[in-house]
Design a protein around this nucleic acid. Sequence first.
DNA 1: AGTTGGCACTCAAGGTGTATGAGTGCTAAG
DNA 2: CTTAGCACTCATACACCTTGAGTGCCAACT
Lengths: 341, 341
Amino acid sequence: MISERSLDVLRVIVQDYVANNEPVGSKTIVERHDFGVSAATIRNDMASLEEEDLIVAPHTSSGRVPTDKGYRLFVDRLATVRPLSPAQRLAIERFLGESVDVDGVLERTVRLLSQLTHQVALVQYPSAAHSAIRRIEFVSLGPNKVLCVLIAAGGVVEQRVVDLPRDAGEDWLGVVQDRVNGAVHGLEVGDALARLAELAEATGGSDRDAGLALVEAVREQLAVERHDRLVVAGSSNLIRGERDFNGNISPVLDALEEQVVLLRLFSEMEEDRRGVSASIGRENASFGLGEASVLSASYTGTGGRAAHLGVLGPTRMDYTANMAAVRAVARYLSRLFGENI
Amino acid sequence: MISERSLDVLRVIVQDYVANNEPVGSKTIVERHDFGVSAATIRNDMASLEEEDLIVAPHTSSGRVPTDKGYRLFVDRLATVRPLSPAQRLAIERFLGESVDVDGVLERTVRLLSQLTHQVALVQYPSAAHSAIRRIEFVSLGPNKVLCVLIAAGGVVEQRVVDLPRDAGEDWLGVVQDRVNGAVHGLEVGDALARLAELAEATGGSDRDAGLALVEAVREQLAVERHDRLVVAGSSNLIRGERDFNGNISPVLDALEEQVVLLRLFSEMEEDRRGVSASIGRENASFGLGEASVLSASYTGTGGRAAHLGVLGPTRMDYTANMAAVRAVARYLSRLFGENI
DNA sequence: AGTTGGCACTCAAGGTGTATGAGTGCTAAG
DNA sequence: CTTAGCACTCATACACCTTGAGTGCCAACT
């Protein structure tokens, strides 16, 4: 069993190491913190911590550094997610105050988050799965090319070009458009999917193939939504922490461009009771981010359904402060979407 | 005056330095290239080149390295933009073959370009300024919020949320929508701007303010288009060349996120007769990219009007190969937009 | 049982000194 | 104009040493 004081030691090791980027030794601890015991005692505690694989010594003889497991314990049991400072709250209010449209808000949000945390910030587009469909518009682009524009509540717009199997006249397009709109207007995206399947079944006549192609396109459009996109900011913050990534940040930059990986990671993260979630170091190894940590929280977007936002940084990051920032920004964003747009 | 052979020397210095990342000395040159003269002679030539500020010696006694001016001369007079290898052409055809919509094509293009060049690739959204307006749609989002969707030829879609000064009913919206569509349908974006101004003038009655707000929103939407956006790929390639950036790639990453800077740079670059343009090192200093070079070419997008694409990398890059790739990709993209979408 | 001081040991980091070799400029001769 | 030769310059690498922070262990103390 690990003593109470040993956990305190772990806490200050994490804090000092994050602050100074230097392995922290027993002597440093007694100098900087008032434990009321001698360095030798701290050394004993550190020995138990090392036994539990919570800290390691990079070299035979230099201070200790938290392991991933150590960070995990710190995050789960030792860190308090304290509210932001008034100055920071003000920054959030001021930043997000002037909202224009969804794109603009997300853009601002992600910048804000990266400035607050000095890490790479990520914001997922809000899901449209539960927002009502306002209108579907077919626009002829050429002989057998049709642009299909989907407008949902909350100002979400999706577009897609469809190749039709045969030439389609403007008037025919209009008829199909009216029929489709009549079928799905006001429905939630999820329900609309089912409704369209029925519609496709019921379609007949000589236009069957072309009609099917169109309906199918709309269904795809509903299924693959922008929810699968991230807005990113602050990637230059990676450079500052390059050392922490073993000098190898290429996989991180690739992941930021790839996005799919990060979205999967987001989706697998479960919030704890404090409203934030952390995935630390090797826990991300399967995503190619074994040297990185990700903090995330979810916010409720336009459609009422949740999307994620968060930060990505080196394992050695200030979890306390960053978790606070992530949570606060997520809450503000939810509020903003709730009342405004 | 600089002798013909001296220019040859400059050429091999650029090529060797780009290939090996080592300052190249007189002895190395005579070993690797068949100049038919001795090292001492090469040294004399190098002295003239240095006098002209085309090369410099990093240390008192190690080989020479091209200056920005040297690269410039190389690009302008010494480099031949030779066609791509059949394998590369094949890669382009295969990559861009399966086109879906504008977004998809640009996405693929930028990845392709970054893979061909091993640099950061940039593709600007095609300008909609000369494409015809297909339809403008107003969708009510709330008491006095309207979503304004603009659909132009070529599948370009713009959206924007407008706050109205007063509550607007669905039917009133419909009326305005019909009037606006009647006014601008089929017009080029540029002409539509003027036409809308007239329309706003002619608007009267109690709805004047609300109508003005809507029309004004459409005008802004026409003016500020996606043309102002870049798609980026391959930023992890920056890491490989980090040394070349003096180990300081933060400003570059910032510029990639900021985009505005790069767009301005693109717009200031003029293509030469070969269809490519280069901006080298310090020439970019005012953009905060003094250690970087940018190659660009323009392509003709959907509306028939041009947008830019290019690559960004360290000053020490393979200009010959990269210029070829940029030009080839631009041509392919033009062709693709011309025939297909 | 837990805490403490003492001691020998380890090892990264930083400094100094020396050899090496690639490369240069210059000069005088071909 | 070209060439060979020579003296000179540095960056790099390596070996070597010193320093100091930090450790583990043990015996003694509370």
